[in-house]
Design a protein around this nucleic acid. Structure first.
Length: 893
RNA sequence: GGGCCCUUAGCUCAGUUGGUUAGAGCGCUACCUUGACAUGGUAGAGGUCAGAGAUUCGAGUUCUCUAGGGCCCACCA
């Protein structure tokens, strides 16, 4: 205990040491079988080659707080870490890298390329994990899983086959969202629609065997190459006679019919619509309905194919320019008007997405989404905050079939084999040697891989050993809570719910806590391209992990986005330092303190406790109760802020100041008592703070006289279970302390307002107007003197004093006049002004309250207690005004 | 076009079932190096809770509308 602590807390010196100690002691490990109640959280797997950003820091801190809290409460906690292969993102990074070395994926071939990706994964796969350790994540590393691990791959295949057999996984030649740079299909969710300025081109198509023309309007003129018909509304008088005739397409001269369908909006454009079934989702539906020709004009790379005629080889954008030019020259372009419309972009590459006809695998969502919707609407799964329930259900209502095949190499290969002889498809879990239909050996596997989110969707059970009925699965599924951002509710949360219900027959988690996104101080999204992202590891290096965690938690209120502020971070760094110094002070004054054998259960007779002791213990109880309640309700900022103000403004500001005279004094008996209170309270504070600030609390805990094995596995203080200690405090003592504090504040206020220097010692008369106050003041006189720098303090009435500042204090029914003679000390006029101002302000409140109480309906309708407390308040205010008026007189006389 | 959210002190934000005189941090002003901490202490200034209406004895808190800002979903060519 005599160990010297430095006067500043330096996280750099303790954090890594502490983390290693936790890990090697095995504190993070969950038990597959346990008598303890389970509490499990599956970490949203970060991109394996990614690095920790502020969003992760927030997401992880929330989970770690919950896990540490529950662990201390005695739960069998599992926080399961893992990482995601992130198909597109990782493949893109590796490809880019190879290109710089002059290598090309296609030239290398599948196997060689995948070897490169695995090499990359091995090099960078641990980076994110070491960053998680810096944050303090108490995950069970022994259970770490990667989405491409053998077990997970088996689970993926099993699910695929299961869905296939059920008819819910099917292959179809459909119009999909195609990303030309990726040369792959992407799902609806991976398309972001942005309003884009474009043009509405009016093209003139001539009607066959006549001089008539029909004008159509389009935003994508190049697609005319794939037009299958022109469509008008059957009731449109302008075009009635044209229906059934053919038009001749410009440039190519190809002939297509004019048909009618009520789908067409007569008021938009010219009321005549060109239909390109292979390149537009609406046209696709029309094409199916009217059995139209599907003319694909694109190659996989987004260039025009042989159907593009003279434009073959050009990219769509280039082709558009050229075609507009040509049409204009030949007189087919009637007019061009500016037009804003939604254009789909690939969220990975930013390229314009092309609707593209191709053969893909789809998950039929109709049947699988119904139960997934129900479990949320009937609150088997609860979203926090609730508002996301609506969003989720809305999406579930409009969900389309999910395109899960990707024309990539990095990912789970689709377990489908095609027969070169009979053309049959074999979908099985184990690689087959022959075709299921004709037994031919000439089979080859589907070249494509699955959408990354397909394997992510299985994460809550695939990570626990499924399809084997493992103990872990029995113990920890369904998991307790899923913590994530709202940006992946559809991508991930919804898919996990669907898959969990289908494969496990139960929800994957009971609660979904949706937090906001981290923004910069100006409210912009943090992004690499804006250059405004803040590296959490850098912040940890500079301010410590605890400060960063506390900053995030103190702001984590409603699930709203939160702005990250360095000033705030600095403030919580200071808070950590405050805790450190409070400990330093305490420990230096605990020298010679004998640790009681009962340890944390040791008490003293309540009669030996000072007012401040009892007050502190009472406050400790309140904090224990409130913090647990806040955490129970996922009110993280509530919990963090409550702890902040308790530690700083109650423990440090008042209790430690009150303890000084005793600790520095000669009364050994009293000193012992205070030391016990100090040791007991510090222990509780450290445990309460641990989930939020694990490193500093563990470090401090190891130096405390009263402690157990380690803070991380110590009991979390709970009001009900801590009664042996907490019952030493009382509401009554708390009241006494409030009275003493009020007296001290009143004196300090006068000093401060009148700029009476601390060095200038003054005398004060305290005039209690009842016996109770008299007693309280008498027993706390020395503390009052010390904390307000008094040279003399008389607890007695002295009406004869002149030119005094008088501050009336009233708490409950106790009234005290604090009387300070000011003659010779200050400008009396100034004090008169100050008092007058206060009286004015107070009188306004009195008027307001009087009005309220004279309202008969208020008195008649409001609950008795509300009326009563208002009456008392009014009485207090009125008497305070009177007393201040008296004070004014005494000041001037 | 549909849906969700936000607007409270100079700044960033708390304020979950409506009820004492609306809070915090930072910043600001004044004073203070007092034996844990200047990453500190003490005191202070600063708000008609975006606006209007409604419900209620009572609204920052519930409802409606308006203004401003943000987000999500959506095939009008």
């Amino acid at each position: 205990m005599s160990e010297q602590l430095s006067d500043r807390y330096s996280p750099q010196e303790v954090e890594s040491k502490i983390y290693e100690a936790w890990e090697s002691a095995g504190y993070f490990k969950a038990e597959d079988q346990s008598t303890k109640p389970p509490f499990s959280v599956i970490l949203p797997p970060p991109n394996v080659t990614g690095f920790l950003h502020m969003g992760h820091a927030l997401d992880h801190t929330i989970q770690d707080v919950l896990i540490r809290w529950k662990r201390m409460l005695g739960f069998n906690t599992l926080w399961l870490p893992g990482s995601d292969h992130a198909g597109i993102a990782t493949q893109a990074v590796v490809e880019k890298n190879l290109r710089q070395e002059g290598k090309d994926r296609l030239e290398m071939g599948r196997e060689a390329f995948l070897a490169e990706v695995w090499k990359w994964k091995k090099t960078y796969g641990d980076r994110i994990y070491s960053q998680m350790k810096r944050l303090g994540d108490s995950v069970d590393w022994d259970r770490e899983v990667f989405t491409l691990d053998e077990d997970v791959s088996q689970a993926v295949k099993k699910v695929f086959v299961h869905l296939y057999k059920k008819g819910w996984m099917y292959q179809g030649e459909k119009l999909v969202n195609w990303s030309p740079p990726l040369q792959s299909a992407i799902s609806d969710l991976e398309v972001v629609h942005k309003d884009t300025k474009g043009h509405l081109y009016h093209l003139s198509y001539s009607i066959e065997e006549s001089d008539e023309k029909i004008i159509i309007a389009t935003t994508r003129p190049e697609t005319f190459l794939g037009d299958a018909c022109v469509c008008v509304h059957p009731d449109d008088s302008r075009y009635k006679d044209s229906i059934g005739k053919n038009v001749v397409l410009p440039i190519t001269g190809r002939k297509i019919p004019i048909i009618a369908d009520e789908y067409v909006d007569q008021d938009f454009g010219t009321g005549a619509l060109k239909v390109t079934p292979a390149h537009d989702f609406n046209d696709y539906e029309l094409g199916k309905k009217h059995n139209l020709q599907f003319i694909n004009i694109l190659n996989v790379d987004g260039t025009l194919n042989e159907n593009g005629g003279p434009y073959q080889g050009l990219k769509t954008q280039e082709a558009r320019k050229q075609i507009v030019k040509d049409l204009e020259e030949k007189g087919f372009l009637v007019k061009t008007e500016p037009h804003q419309h939604a254009v789909g972009y690939c969220d990975r590459t930013g390229a314009v997405v092309e609707p593209f006809l191709s053969k893909q695998w789809f998950v039929k969502t109709k049947d699988i989404s119904t139960p997934a919707r129900h479990v949320v609407s009937n609150e088997t799964i609860k979203f926090i905050p609730e508002q996301w329930t609506k969003t989720y259900i809305h999406w579930m209502n409009i969900i389309e079939d999910w395109c899960v095949s990707r024309q990539l190499w990095w990912g789970h290969r689709i377990p489908a084999w095609y027969c070169d002889d009979c053309g049959g498809v074999t979908v099985v879990e184990e690689d087959p040697s022959s075709c299921e239909m004709c037994q031919s050996k000439n089979i080859h596997q589907d070249e494509d891989v699955l959408d990354t989110w397909f394997s992510s969707g299985l994460w809550p059970f695939s990570t626990l050993g499924w399809p084997n009925e493992t103990e872990a699965l029995k113990t920890f599924y369904p998991t307790s809570v899923l913590v994530t951002g709202h940006d992946i509710i559809f991508f991930w949360v919804a898919r996990m719910i669907m898959m969990g219900l289908e494969m496990k027959g139960d929800v994957p988690f009971r609660q979904v806590y949706i937090h906001g996104l981290i923004r910069d101080s100006q409210g912009r999204k943090m992004s690499k391209s804006l250059g405004n992202s803040i590296d959490p590891v850098e912040m940890i290096d500079k301010y410590g992990a605890d400060a960063l965690r506390f900053t995030l938690m103190a702001q984590m209120a409603t699930g709203k986005d939160l702005k990250f502020s360095l000033q705030r971070l600095e403030g919580y760094r200071n808070f950590m330092n405050k805790i450190w110094n409070a400990t330093r002070f305490s420990l230096s004054n605990l020298e010679g303190f004998e640790v009681p054998v009962e340890g944390i259960n040791a008490t003293v007779p309540s009669s030996s406790l000072t007012t401040a002791d009892q007050w502190l213990i009472y406050q400790t109880g309140l904090v224990e109760k409130e913090v647990n309640e806040a955490l129970e309700g996922m009110q993280f900022s509530e919990a963090a802020n409550r702890l902040y103000s308790f530690v700083w403004h109650e423990f440090c500001d008042w209790y430690l100041e009150f303890s000084k005279p005793i600790l520095y004094g000669q009364d050994e008996q009293q000193k012992k008592t205070t030391q016990l209170v100090l040791a007991q309270t510090l222990n509780r504070i450290v445990r309460l703070l641990h989930p939020f600030a694990p490193f500093i609390t563990e470090e401090i805990y190891s130096k405390l006289p009263i402690r157990s094995e380690a803070c991380i596995v110590a009991d979390y203080p709970e009001y009900e279970k801590d009664q042996k200690w907490l019952s030493l405090g009382s509401k009554e003592s708390s009241f006494e302390m409030e009275l003493v504090k009020a007296v001290i504040l009143a004196i300090r206020n006068i000093r401060g307002e009148n700029s009476i220097k601390p060095s200038e010692k003054i005398s004060v008369w305290l005039s209690p107007q009842d016996d109770k106050s008299q007693k309280i003041l008498g027993s706390n006189k020395s503390e009052i003197m010390r904390l307000s720098s008094l040279v003399e303090c008389y607890v007695e009435s002295r009406e004869s004093l002149k030119k005094c500042a008088v501050t009336p204090i009233r708490i409950d029914n106790s009234v005290i006049d604090v009387v300070i003679p000011l003659e010779g000390l200050v400008d009396i006029e100034k004090e008169v002004d100050r008092l007058n101002k206060q009286i004015d302000k107070q009188q306004k409140d009195v008027q307001k309250l009087k009005g309220k109480l004279s309202n008969e309906r208020f008195v008649a309708n409001a609950p008795e207690e509300v009326v009563e407390s208002d009456r008392q308040l009014l009485a207090t205010l009125v008497s305070q005004v009177e007393e201040m008026q008296t004070a004014l007189e005494r000041l001037s006389n």
